[in-house]
Design a protein around this nucleic acid. Structure first.
Lengths: 210, 210, 210, 210
DNA sequence: CATGAATGAGCTTTCATTCAT
DNA sequence: TATGAATGAAAGCTCATTCAT
């Protein structure tokens, strides 16, 4: 009705776009397949042609969110400059990225809740955070090796950095007026890595401005 | 069916205990009232005598979790000793408390997800975190005033501490094998307040003013 | 709670008064026993002490309505004067009585609907209308015997008179703005008995005033 | 279950037929959707595909009854002959029509009872009777204009005729053994219009003006 | 007599999924 | 490929009735 003969990939994306919208608006459970049907402009049968169930759509969205997230992470880590600088850049980008996704963030919390009961979701989240933590640890280790950082446990430092950021997102979701995601995340990062930074970095560390 | 005429308070708790169990096991939406009926050992009618809807039960659980949490917080803050010591004690207690609640933590994430769409849940979470942050900020300020801490922005420091802890809980929920809640939370706290503590790093403190 | 130790009869009436109110407001089926409990100011148990079920209350109300109705009928028929005059008086009284019951009239229609499926209700209605018709037929026959009326079939005439009145009540329930119960009922009566009235009655028959 | 893909109109009728049966047998409130499901031979979902609620089905039945009734009325009024003859024909047809609907008549009383509390039902009934009365009044007026009737108030005469007929239906529903619908309705009609008819009683006509 | 907490069968409605076309 | 009518298992909630106190 309206749309005809599109590439399968386009159709899948059309459906996932609609689904993210609907899920963000109503939550996984309250969202009805009919909502997705309406929002997508396709038919019930078409949806079921491309995804075998509602759960399959949820899984596909999880994949989509994480692959986008990971791409952003890789880009930030691949940049030039000091380790501290690259961490700050990562935090800045992530904060902005999160802000731009504003409406699908609640979905993430649905996933965390789901993780407790849903093997596949849990596995996907575990893979994602393990990779994230490993990437960050590698970067911190680089700083230690180069002498930019004191000899800290890179993995533990990475964990602290990720936790701080994720925790801020949580608090921001609860009350966006009380958290300035980019600014507070940057400050959190500096608090965490501050003591590990060697003297020679003092001149570039203690400002709060962009 | 077994139980008759109990004190209203006992009955409410009987129901909420059952509900928390069921919700933790199946999630808010997949949990059926019949599950709660079965788990509580009461009848359908009895449940609805004490709570006018499933939502009302959810709200009551939110209250219950938070009032317990807040009680724990107040206790920890009221202790003796240095501010840093009290913060560490708070983190230790909270970590253990969280571990003991292991099975109801996923509920919290249901609440965060719910917050986006549910006015009352959002308001309750906002009140809780605002109080938590204010309490912590007061403690930090105490440290600043006593000279134990450098003159940092107590509110921002409180935010960073809470975010770190909540973030660790999130990562622990996703993969309990990768996070040692008590140990990692303690390390996170020390990283965050480390630079502000006077006895070690007085000469290089960065101000945290607006 | 409030009321204590009353005579059984008073209690029963207290309950029936409350029940008629509630039934008129919500209909038999939508009316809940709890509504009657609240309206009566008694307790659940008290209601069930005096009436063994909701149906028993309905039956009692049916009885009550009909015995009141029958009393009114007897009174009107026992009056003095010409038959036509007594019929007019009956119609006048009945119209006013109906108007005064305004809010319980819909109940009557619940009863008519119920009659089709409910043996006891049907029997009660049949008894009532049979008696009504017989009483009226006796009166008409009196008119025939006295020569006030031409020799009509008194029973058929009674049927026509009752039908006209009941039909007007129906139309008045549907739209009270379109029917003036007293006036239209009087006119209906006169139309029906008009042709049967003998010459000597012409001087008192054709006016429309009270 | 059995039937697949039928025209929407057929399906709606299939459902309404089943619903009328069930409602007549059990009354609006005692009738369960499952009864309609069973009676219709369709599935629960199919019923709700065509009607969004039980109330919607009730409303549709009201419409159906009235549109059939109105059609019958128009036909009778459109016939040839004297006004009295056409009125008699109308009564005869209506009586037979009512008899043929024997089992759905109780439904009508449910509607009258419902009218008191249900705005839409009330409005539908009001429209129906207003139209009925207007049509009948037009016919009577025709008789007055042609000189067949004395100059009576056509609207009042119409009201009396309708009331007589509806009242007889009521009494017939209560006790079918005591009312011969066709015969008694015809007699009722003649009683009411008798005095107004010119050929017999021209010399003693009473005016019916306001 | 009176109370009101407790019972549980039963109700309407929803919605993921299927499948004839 | 695509459609949307049709399916039917739940689900949340109601409420007449009971009965220990």
């Amino acid at each position: 009705m309206g749309t005809k003969k599109e590439s399968p990939e386009k159709r899948r994306n059309q459906i996932l776009d609609a689904a993210m919208d609907v899920f963000a608006r109503r939550g996984f459970h309250k969202a009805r397949m009919d909502d997705i049907v309406r929002e997508s402009g396709l038919s019930k049968g078409a949806i079921y042609w491309y995804f075998k169930s509602k759960d399959a759509i949820i899984a596909a969205i999880l994949d989509r969110i994480f692959s986008r997230e990971q791409k952003a992470l890789k880009e930030a880590l691949a940049a030039e400059g000091s380790v501290a600088g690259r961490l700050e850049e990562l935090v800045r980008r992530s904060a902005r990225h999160t802000l731009s996704l504003r409406f699908s963030i609640p979905l993430m919390f649905e996933f965390y809740a789901l993780a407790a009961r849903h093997e596949q979701v849990r596995a996907a989240l575990q893979r994602y955070y393990a990779a994230y933590r490993a990437d960050l640890a590698r970067l911190v280790q680089e700083g230690v090796d180069s002498g930019e950082f004191a000899p800290v446990d890179a993995d533990k430092m990475a964990l602290a950095i990720i936790a701080e950021f994720e925790g801020l997102i949580l608090l921001w979701v609860v009350d966006p007026t009380k958290v300035n995601l980019e600014e507070d995340a940057l400050r959190g990062l500096r608090l965490i890595i501050g003591r590990a930074q060697r003297e020679r970095a003092t001149n570039r560390t203690c400002e709060e401005d962009e």
